[in-house]
Design a protein around this nucleic acid. Structure first.
Lengths: 246, 246
DNA sequence: GCAAAAGTGTTGGAAATACACCCATGT
DNA sequence: ACATGGGTGTATTTCCAACACTTTTGC
């Protein structure tokens, strides 16, 4: 670009001040975060729901959400909301999708960014003091408030996909787990049955499990060995995956 | 839930009117859509960029974006912006990610929802009357305005992943294409070289290409056969994919 | 000793990879 | 005739799926 062209360009360019007027109130929209919080307990995949606080949806369940503050990073808002609702920090959180139909909220325009998080129900005993907050089997979730059913369905599908490509599942298990625990988890998330021997083979071949040389306690049958996931080794891998398949 | 409990709940519930006050201006945020528009031409993957119209970024390239209107569905906004910038409708568009760092826009808080679109450069001769709009080789894209480099990188990665799982690539090709065209496309997107025979085998085995019994014209060598993609057959498939692999 | 789940190997088929030659066209 | 890329087949390897018996523990 020549100097003359550059100058011509600058002439057409807007100053920051000019842009600011476009961002004035009339063009602003309320923005919220909704968290789909998955847990795993009693060999079932669970999701944390709260009673809707809106009369229109009285009695219905809804996701945990809140408005994003004007001076708050989007990701920070997600962590704040998770912390507020569950008391938890330092957990897996991932943005999934943004829902922005004009009429999705009865009180006005609210665009919502959905985050998905996976927490270990046993390990993080959540303050469910408020009995409005409840773990639900994902199998039986239906008829949520707002468009939360759609959001939930999207997140569950995404979880099912991503749990196969990344070691997310371990965020749902205790630090020490048996291979049976791990398989139960995958079977619950993916809603399939797997061959036990092939499942073990797969994970042992990956070579990402650390044998703790400990055994399950209090099992009403032969106790299994306990393992933990080798996150460090996994981080170093990062394979380049190529395989057209659809 | 008993009737008494239900009543107690309703007492605590908020009316829509009460919620509305939370959505008042002080809690609103400007929302934009940015489109990462991929094209394919001269066997290279391209992306459509425009000169930033902001003085601060004078001379830098940026994605095509615009504010979302308060009474406009988010997806509609994406289609509108694509239409405005390229004159195109009826193309592939997919939401990718939402970027919401407080300081990402110098003129104030703007959260942006990114969409990715794939268009056929040959087929849709875009009105690039405005010479501020330009196709760039993705290989050489760097130093974009705002956080657009990060957005672009995210979209390219997502494209590389999704193009292997879904037949998106055909949106970048003319309706009739040779297997060489198809392979060039995949090699350009994934930045790898593939074996020609195995590539053909893979696609023929999928059985989703319709042989048009036509030949390339004006090839400076033996002309190849032309095919089109069998979208109908693909739609009917929708396989359940299970395979843990990370 | 019995119930219940842990642990363990082999085999056959499918899919991915590696690889080399002849063919049709334009110049 | 020759340069260019189109079109084809086979051998090898790798991965996945199917499948059954022995072991350990609690009761």
């Amino acid at each position: 670009m020549s100097a003359a062209e550059k100058k011509a360009l600058e002439k057409k360019s807007k100053s920051i001040h000019a842009i600011q007027s476009e961002l004035e109130n009339t063009n602003r929209i309320a923005l919220s975060v909704d968290c789909v919080i998955f847990g795993f307990d009693e060999n079932k995949l669970k999701v944390l729901l709260i009673r809707s606080d809106l009369k229109k949806y009285s009695g219905k369940w809804s996701l945990l959400g809140d408005l994003v503050f004007p001076k708050e990073d989007l990701d920070d808002a997600a962590y704040r909301i998770l912390k507020q609702r569950t008391g938890l920090s330092d957990v897996y959180l991932e943005q999934v999708h943004t829902f922005g139909a004009v009429d999705r909220h009865p009180a006005g325009r609210v665009v919502t960014v959905t985050y998905c998080s996976l927490i270990n129900v046993q390990h993080h005993k959540i303050n469910i003091l408020d009995n409005e907050l409840h773990w639900h089997d994902v199998q039986t979730v239906k008829d949520l408030a707002f468009d939360h059913q759609q959001i939930f369905d999207t997140c569950l599908k995404q979880l099912q996909k991503r749990v196969q490509e990344h070691p997310l599942g371990f965020n749902l298990l205790p630090k020490k787990f048996s291979l049976r625990d791990l398989q139960n988890l995958y079977e619950a998330i993916l809603d399939v049955k797997m061959d036990r021997r092939n499942f073990r083979k797969k994970f042992f071949t990956m070579d990402l499990l650390i044998d703790l040389n400990e055994m399950e306690q209090d099992a009403p049958h032969r106790p299994g060995k306990l393992y933990k996931f080798n996150f460090e080794k996994y981080e170093k891998k990062q394979k380049k995956w190529v395989g057209i398949d659809f």
